[in-house]
Amino acid sequence: MKDLLHSRFRFKSSELSESQFAYLFILPLLILLVALIIFPFLYSLWLSLRNVRFELGISQFVGLAQYARAFKDPRVLDAIVKTGEYTVAVTVIATIVCVTTALLLNEKFYGRKALATLVILPWGISTYAAAIIWRYMYFENIGFFNAVLERLHLISEPVVFLSPNWALICIALAHAWQLAPLGVYFVLASLQVIPQDLYRAAKIDHLGVFGRFRYVTVPYIRNALLIILVLITVEAARVFDIIYFSTGGGPAGATTTLTYLIYIATFNNFDIGYGAALSYILLAIIFIVTFIYFLLLFGSRKEKA
């Protein structure tokens, strides 16, 4: 019986063409992608065209009214600006950290191996835990920064880091801390394939440190960098937990990004249709940004070919 089954399967899987065999293998992925992309996409769209208020027992079709409401709501524009500021801050900080660390690890120095091992650590830590960790750093009375600044006699009063002006950038720093490590390895991998002859040739051409970085290093790490930029930008634009754990959208709405506004609309106000409409706006923004990155990425590949 076992032999029979075995021979039947052998007969079958060899009879399939490569393409059919491949589709058999990726079928589970297709099902999950439908569950993850198409179902929420359509269901949110349907919700965003309705006014759903469970506590009042209301669920009616309202057309584009929720979107019209969103564009008139000053909090929405404010949240979009905050999301943009936050995303740019995280991306810039994380990219600087990531490229600097990779360039450093590409040099020879004592303790390089140990440092390369340690650098990965924040990657393992989740965003919510990163938020907690950095809140302990920022605390007014028991925080690390104030403790050190006080020891150095640089301040007489504790600094309020999570203030309306600085909270957004402080959280961005925490998020960049957690996002940068993986990128370090991507950039390092692409740095290591640069032929050393190119640097020698550039030196002969009298290119300085920055000239060599611009004309030799950058072209080689460009693609790795773009992929990291996509990942980091998307992570920053869609993050929720880091804000929930560090500031709860405050103080005075200073860190209420679009994701946080969606959370308030949906889970605090139970205004589910409005939350769905807002999440469509966020989705549109993320897709546009990702699309621009892809143009840059694949545009550059065509040039090379």
């Binding site: 490569e18 491949a22 992608l33 992309i37 634009a237 969606i262 769905a276 966020l282 990702t290």
Partner: peptide, 26 residues
């Protein structure tokens, strides 16, 4: 393996990564 629409599937995988959790949660 080679098969039709492979690039579209790769793109869908990347797309699925860019969904904000808060929009999937609703």
């Amino acid at each position: 393996l080679n098969f039709k629409h492979k690039n579209k599937i790769l793109f869908a995988i990347l797309g699925s990564r860019s969904y904000p959790p808060i929009t999937v949660v609703i």
